[in-house]
Design a binder for these strands. Structure first.
Lengths: 323, 323
DNA sequence: GTGAAAGCGCTAACAG
DNA sequence: CTGTTAGCGCTTTCAC
C-alpha cells in the first residue's frame, strides 16, 4: 500500500496538518526539529505527495494544456519546447495535444483539458482557422493563442510573429551587403504568411530607394520543386538578378539546386536567403542563409503570459509580438 | 461559479449518484427518462465533470507521462506522436517532459509524474544512460522504455529498434538491385547504433556472397562534413565503388555534395542510401534513398504496451522489437 | 431504478 | 508552534 500523509503523521507523532506544511514548505511556523523529523520519515518511506488530492482543495493542478496541429511538423517542436521550459520553471506540467488542424479534435482536447482541470491552455492556431467556434468561447480557463499567421482572431491573449518585419529586416540586410537586384520567390499569395513576407520585401526595397520590379517576383508554393522551377525559368529568360529572397527554406533549397545545375556558385554568383521553417535545412545546405523564426521564444513567451494570466486574472487579453 | 454534479442533481431532482452514473455511461440501471433529463441539464449548464475529483476515488488519472531527451531533436516528435495517438485512443492524456539526457531532470520528472499520479510512463532512453538509478527502480507505476540504441538496460518492459536488421535489409536491397561495390560510411564506432548498422551491412554482404572489403569502409561522425570528407577521400584515392550505404542522412547529404562537386550523377554513377533520423532530409535531397526508422510505431507500440500494463498488472516486462 | 452515505488524500482556517 | 475539523467533487457500495 502506498504511504500517505497520515502514515507520516503517525510515524512522527505529529498531525497531518503539520506534515502538509513541511511538505509544502510553509515551514515558517514549524520548528526545525519537527521539520527534520518529518523530512526523515518522508525520505525513509519514499512518500510521494498526491497532488491530485491537493488539487482538489487548492483548485490548481499546476498543469497547462498545449494544443498544436502536429508535433511532427517541424514548425512545432520548438514552440512546444519553449512552452515546456517556461512551464517547468514554475513547476507546471504540460499536456501535449495534436489537433491535426481538425476542429473536432480541437474541441475534443479543449474538453479533455478542462475536465482535467488544467490551469490554462496554449493554443497554436492553424493557418486554416479564421474564427473561434462556440466551444472555444466557453473555455473557462485562461487561454492564449500562438499565431504564426497573424490571423484575424481577436479578443484573446495572443503571441504573434511579425513576418512582415522579419522579412523586411532580412531584405534590408541583403541590401546593406550591396545586393541590388533581389529576386523574390514566394509562397502562394493565398497564404497570409506569404503575403506578409512579400510586403516586408517590398517595404525594404522602397525604404532603401530600390525600385520594385515585378519581373523579379515569382510566386509558387512552399516546396522545393517550386523553387527549382522559378529559378530555372529565371535562368532561361535571362533576367538579371544578383540574389534571391525565398519565401521559405524549401523554396530556397530548390533555388540552390537549380543554381548548382547551371554552375552558379553560391554566394559568389548569387546569394540565397531562405525563411526558416525548418531548423535542419541549413545543416544540410550550408550555402543557405536563413531568417530564423523565433519559434522557441514564441512558445516561451506564450507560457509566460499564460502563467501570468493564471496568477492574476486581470492580465488577460494582452498581445505580444515576437521577436 | 462552476457548475458541479450536485447542481445537476438539484436541477433534475435526482441524486448525485444517478447523475454520476449517466455521465459515466454506467447507464445500464438508469431509466431512459432520467437519463435524458440529466443529459439535457448537462447540456444546458455546460457542466464539465471534474476528473480530478473522479481520480481521487478511482485512483486512475487517465494520464501517462512521456519522458524524452528533447522534442526539438528530429528523432523524437514522431515517437511522441505515436505515443499520443495511441494514448488518445483510450482516452489518455500525455504529459510531455524533456530531459535533455540529464539525470537530474529525469529524476525531477519521474517525481513530478508520480506526484501527478500518472497511470504509467513512457521513457525514451538516451544513448548515454547505461543503467537505471535507484530512483528509477522506485517508480511505482508501469514504466516502459523506448530504446533506440539497444542498450543493456533490462528488467523493464521495452521497445527496441533493430538497427542491425534494418541495415541488413537496406544493404540486401541494394545488392538485389545489382550493386556490388557498396561502400559504407558510418558514424563513430563508439556509438552502438553505428556498430549495429555496420554489422547489418556486413551480414548482408556475407549472406549474399560478397566479400567484405575494409577499404570500402570509412568511419566518421554523424554529420555532413564527415560524409563529405569520406567521399572526397574515396574519390581522390581512386577506390572503386558503385554505391554508398551511409550511417545516417547527414552523412549521406555530405556524400551527395561531394559527388556533385565531382560531377557524379546520382544514382547513375553512384547510388546513395542513407539512414533516416530526419524526415525532412529526403524532401530537400531527392536523390537520397533512405532507410525509414519506425519511430512512430515505436511510440505507438510503447503506449499500447503501457496501457496494457496499466490494465493488467501482470503484462509487465515484455519486450517488443520494431519493425 | 435510485438515493444516502462513506470516503479518496490533502489543505486551510481556526483554535489552542 | 501544532492539532482539529471541515470540506474539495466525485464514485461506489448498500439499502430501499
Amino acid at each position: 500500500m502506498k504511504v500517505k500523509i497520515k502514515d507520516i503523521a503517525n510515524m512522527t507523532g505529529v498531525s497531518i496538518a503539520t506534515v502538509s506544511m513541511v511538505i509544502n514548505d510553509k515551514a515558517d511556523r514549524i520548528s526545525p526539529k519537527t521539520r527534520e523529523k518529518v523530512l526523515k520519515a518522508v525520505e525513509e518511506t519514499g512518500y510521494v505527495p498526491n497532488r491530485v488530492a491537493s488539487s482538489m482543495v487548492t483548485k490548481r493542478t499546476k498543469t497547462i494544456g498545449l494544443i498544436i496541429p502536429d508535433i511532427v511538423n517541424p514548425f512545432f517542436p520548438e514552440i512546444a519546447r519553449g512552452v515546456e521550459d517556461r512551464a517547468k520553471k514554475d513547476g507546471f506540467a504540460v499536456i501535449l495535444c495534436n489537433s491535426d488542424n481538425d476542429m473536432n479534435k480541437e474541441e475534443y482536447y479543449l474538453d479533455l483539458l478542462q475536465e482535467k482541470m488544467v490551469d490554462g491552455i496554449v493554443f497554436t492556431v492553424s493557418s486554416v482557422r479564421t474564427e473561434f467556434s462556440d466551444s472555444f468561447k466557453k473555455v473557462g480557463v485562461p487561454l492564449i493563442t500562438v499565431d504564426r499567421d497573424i490571423s484575424n482572431i481577436d479578443n484573446y491573449a495572443k503571441i504573434v510573429v511579425d513576418n512582415e518585419q522579419a522579412s523586411y529586416e532580412a531584405v534590408s540586410y541583403m541590401i546593406s551587403r550591396g545586393l541590388k537586384k533581389i529576386a523574390h520567390m514566394s509562397g502562394p499569395s493565398t497564404s497570409l504568411t506569404a503575403r506578409h513576407r512579400f510586403q516586408g520585401y517590398k517595404r525594404a526595397l522602397e525604404e532603401h530607394g530600390i525600385e520594385f520590379d515585378s519581373s523579379l517576383i515569382c510566386e509558387g508554393f512552399y516546396n522545393t520543386s517550386s523553387g527549382y522551377d522559378c529559378m530555372s525559368k529565371f535562368l532561361k529568360s535571362g533576367i538579371d538578378f544578383d540574389s534571391v529572397f525565398c519565401g521559405n527554406d524549401m523554396i530556397a533549397a530548390g533555388v540552390i539546386k537549380a543554381l548548382h545545375h547551371n554552375d552558379y556558385k553560391i554566394p559568389e554568383d548569387c546569394s540565397v536567403v531562405g525563411f526558416d521553417d525548418v531548423e535542419i535545412a541549413e545543416l544540410i545546405i550550408p550555402e543557405l542563409t536563413t531568417v530564423r523564426q523565433p519559434k522557441y521564444d514564441m512558445g516561451y513567451k506564450a507560457a509566460e503570459l499564460l502563467i501570468d494570466m493564471i496568477n492574476n486574472k486581470d492580465a488577460s487579453k494582452k498581445e505580444c509580438t515576437t521577436p
